[in-house]
Simulated assay, not measured.
Amino acid sequence: MIPFNKPFIIGKELKYIEEAVLSGKISGDGMFTKKCQQFFEEKYHFPKVLLTTSCTDALEMAAILCNIKEGDEVIVPSYTFVSSANAFALRGAKIIFVDSCTNNPNIDAEKIEEHITEKTKVIVPVHYAGVACDMEKIMALAKKYNLFVVEDAAQAIDSYYTFSDGTKKALGAIGHFAAFSFHETKNIIAGEGGMLVINDSKFFERAEVIREKGTNRSAFFRGEVNKYGWVDLGSSFLPSEIISAFLYAQLENLDIIQAKRIEIWQRYSNAFKSLEEKKCIALPNIPSFADNNAHMFYIICKNYEERTNLIQYLKAKDIHPVFHYLSLNKSDYYLATNPKIDIPNSDHFTDNLLRLPFYYELSKDDQDKIIQLILTFYLPC
């Protein structure tokens, strides 16, 4: 069986886990947590980074920092993972779904403004497949209407956005906040784990408090206060040193991992160009302002039936591709309290997008097998 995903060890993951245990501290905010945070702040020029137990937790922290309350409205793409919406719904927000672009699963920045009301408080651009949303347009809207921008950068590590003036910034460094994931399906993994990026210094102190169960415990350990207590809302968002130790070993090999993933992505892309030229399938669209961090490779089938048949065909050959998100506006939870809305592009990707096996240890032979089978499937096209 060629799986869809496979976790991997590339360097000193086990050695660092042992070091963490032997250090006598495996709870949060130890040596490896600090090393990881420093790595991200230095490499991507993030002003402040806090590791979390998941990207979901980072989004929930962002919702608290944005002071989301009952009745606030938060703009989210329909084609995304439920956490992008759930983090704000948990604080009482009404989720306003916006459609994807016609040729890209990302939120259509041209359609956002028509959904902004006096109740709108946050825009949540989700950088699907690590490919940037149109952040220049989104940030202009945020400035015009005095809104927060929370980048859901779960898939976007080591990816960049180029502004019209030529300025280039890492995804996650553009909005007010950003959330990343180190789930085992991501480029850089730790099993679970995530991080919150805070790009405005006025939120640094409160973010630390929220992450430490609503206490000023971090300030206490730095000697800034002589005792700590409950000062704000919060929860236990710190990852253990076991997660951080594994993650740091991966970060030491970031360039190697990324080079291999880009090689895999490019091999898929080159192999299927002929199918795209014949309009048998569509391939990922990378806008001119976006980088490709090779998070995933997908194809877009002509219709739901074709995708179903292709999945069954590949599974019969011991290959495990997967489809991705179901449009959140069609979810049972949303429809229980909201009327049906028409979001056609999101539905298009829901029905037709197929993700191919993609992981660091995917061999050339296995990838060639996948490619050849898909080419054979589309031979009559």
Results as ranks from 00 to 15, higher is better:
181 S>F: 08
181 S>T: 06
182 F>M: 06
182 F>R: 00
182 F>I: 10
183 H>Y: 15
183 H>F: 14
184 E>Y: 15
184 E>D: 14
184 E>A: 13
185 T>H: 09
185 T>C: 05
185 T>W: 05
185 T>I: 10
185 T>M: 09
185 T>R: 06
186 K>E: 14
186 K>R: 15
187 N>Q: 14
187 N>W: 01
187 N>C: 11
187 N>H: 07
188 I>V: 15
188 I>N: 02
189 I>P: 07
189 I>R: 07
189 I>Y: 04
189 I>N: 02
189 I>H: 05
189 I>S: 02
190 A>G: 15
190 A>I: 08
190 A>M: 09
190 A>T: 10
191 G>H: 11
191 G>L: 09
191 G>Y: 13
191 G>R: 12
193 G>A: 01
193 G>K: 02
193 G>H: 03
193 G>C: 05
194 G>F: 05
194 G>M: 03
195 M>V: 03
195 M>W: 03
195 M>L: 14
195 M>F: 14
196 L>K: 08
197 V>C: 10
197 V>F: 03
197 V>I: 15
197 V>T: 11
198 I>F: 02
198 I>S: 04
198 I>N: 07
198 I>T: 13
199 N>G: 07
199 N>D: 12
200 D>V: 07
200 D>Q: 15
201 S>M: 08
201 S>I: 09
201 S>W: 00
202 K>G: 00
202 K>Y: 10
202 K>E: 12
202 K>Q: 15
202 K>R: 14
203 F>V: 03
203 F>P: 02
204 F>G: 01
204 F>S: 05
204 F>Y: 15
206 R>W: 12
206 R>N: 10
207 A>C: 11
207 A>R: 01
208 E>N: 12
208 E>C: 13
209 V>T: 13
209 V>D: 06
209 V>C: 11
209 V>L: 00
209 V>E: 14
210 I>L: 13
210 I>W: 10
211 R>H: 14
211 R>Q: 13
211 R>A: 15
211 R>T: 11
212 E>W: 04
212 E>L: 13
212 E>D: 15
213 K>T: 10
213 K>I: 10
213 K>D: 12
214 G>T: 07
214 G>W: 12
215 T>E: 08
215 T>G: 09
216 N>M: 04
216 N>T: 02
216 N>C: 04
216 N>S: 03
217 R>S: 07
217 R>V: 00
217 R>W: 01
217 R>P: 01
218 S>R: 05
218 S>G: 01
218 S>E: 03
218 S>P: 03
219 A>V: 00
219 A>D: 11
219 A>H: 06
221 F>N: 02
221 F>P: 00
222 R>E: 10
223 G>Y: 02
223 G>Q: 09
223 G>P: 01
224 E>N: 07
224 E>W: 02
225 V>L: 04
225 V>D: 05
225 V>S: 08
